[in-house]
């Protein structure tokens, strides 16, 4: 499923809504999550999962092409942990 397919699904559930409006909602939704994460906040979506950030220490990496050692700076990366309900339902369908 892509974002535009998700837009269609939202319109199907909220019949009076235009796809343009549904698109705004979806963009705002993920923008809000992104913003909260960039402020170091945890985003907990009950029944779905939670988004958090994790710190990565600076390390010495290697350019795989040239073999040259490069300094990789410390960074913060997003992380998603599926909630119990999502985890169980996704696995139950195998």
């Amino acid at each position: 499923m892509t974002k535009s397919e998700l837009v269609e699904k939202v319109v199907a559930n909220h019949k009076h809504m235009t796809s343009k409006e549904a698109e705004y909602v979806i963009n705002e939704f993920f923008h809000a999550i992104s913003l909260a994460l960039s402020e170091g906040e945890r985003v907990e979506l009950r029944g779905f999962g939670s988004f958090t950030t994790k710190k990565r220490e600076a390390r010495v990496g290697r350019n795989p092409k040239t073999g040259e050692a490069v300094q990789v700076p410390a960074k913060v990366v997003p992380h998603f942990k599926p909630g119990k309900e999502l985890r169980e339902k996704v696995d139950g369908n195998c």
């Binding site: 499923m1 998700l6 699904k9 939202v10 559930n13 909220h14 909602v25 979806i26 939704f29 979506l45 029944g47 779905f48 999502l86 339902k89």
Partner: peptide, 11 residues
């Protein structure tokens, strides 16, 4: 309701 719909459809 929109928040629920978005998450439900992804799920």
């Amino acid at each position: 309701q929109l928040v629920e719909t978005v998450l439900e459809e992804i799920k």
